[in-house]
Design a protein around this nucleic acid. Sequence first.
DNA 1: CTGCTATAATAGAATTATTCTAAATTAGTA
DNA 2: TACTAATTTAGAATAATTCTATTATAGCAG
Lengths: 136, 136
Amino acid sequence: MMEIINKFKGKGFKLTPQRLSILKFLDGNTSHPTAEDIFKALKKTHPTVSFATVYNTVQALRDRGELQEITIDPEKKHFDPNTAPHHHIMCTACKRVEDVFADYSSALQLPENVSKNFAVSGNHVDFYGICKKCRS
Amino acid sequence: MMEIINKFKGKGFKLTPQRLSILKFLDGNTSHPTAEDIFKALKKTHPTVSFATVYNTVQALRDRGELQEITIDPEKKHFDPNTAPHHHIMCTACKRVEDVFADYSSALQLPENVSKNFAVSGNHVDFYGICKKCRS
DNA sequence: CTGCTATAATAGAATTATTCTAAATTAGTA
DNA sequence: TACTAATTTAGAATAATTCTATTATAGCAG
């Protein structure tokens, strides 16, 4: 928690109460919240917040490399404060997203016809399936 | 082309001129068009079409397993008539999506704590980078 | 070939996610 | 303590997608 806050001292990032609340919510959060999830959580402490505050903060964090945008869900973006390289799996029934910690980097070689045309900056692996809860 | 059309004879799928036009546009198309791309192409032959026709047809094709929805682009969905398992790379500058034909299946093993909680139905690997054109 | 019916097309409204705008507020510095 | 650039807010705007109600038609049944 302290680390997160300290990361934003200086650098033209103002640590407002709203942002502090968002940072607290995100810190160590592995639930892969959507903008709406963050908005709802923030409303508890700041009933008058606007969605713009959520998107502003999310964007500021993304720009600083402190928040990852997850595209696994075709319906909406999810966010992940864990910026270490890792992957995800989504339950196609309940839409929940979970982490997959595995290092596939050495296996994911691009065919030459592609690698010669791209300066690759990253990759991610998305898995889809049905979770235990949704089967029972 | 003929194959595509024949796939939809019977089965409660009506082959309307609009749909035929969409099928022709998609057949062998490796450009990963968005709904808007399809809409624009369709407008050339059917100037009065509605977006609903595009989305209806896309959904019918998806339901029949003849069209894949691509989530690599955070801004919008792309579609791919190639339903054989393969992967994608997106240029983060020009947003173009290209195919990556590589078989990573044996390498993409899930860690046990995940695999024991999911009946996995599929996966895809997304690469990001800058394409040659956008660097020059 | 003709008529019937379920399916599809259309225009446009509605919904959802996200971004923008302009005015009021405030964090952090001087 | 005052100032200023950054932020918040409410709400409008935009973009992607879905829905609705009406009209049209593909494909089958006779």
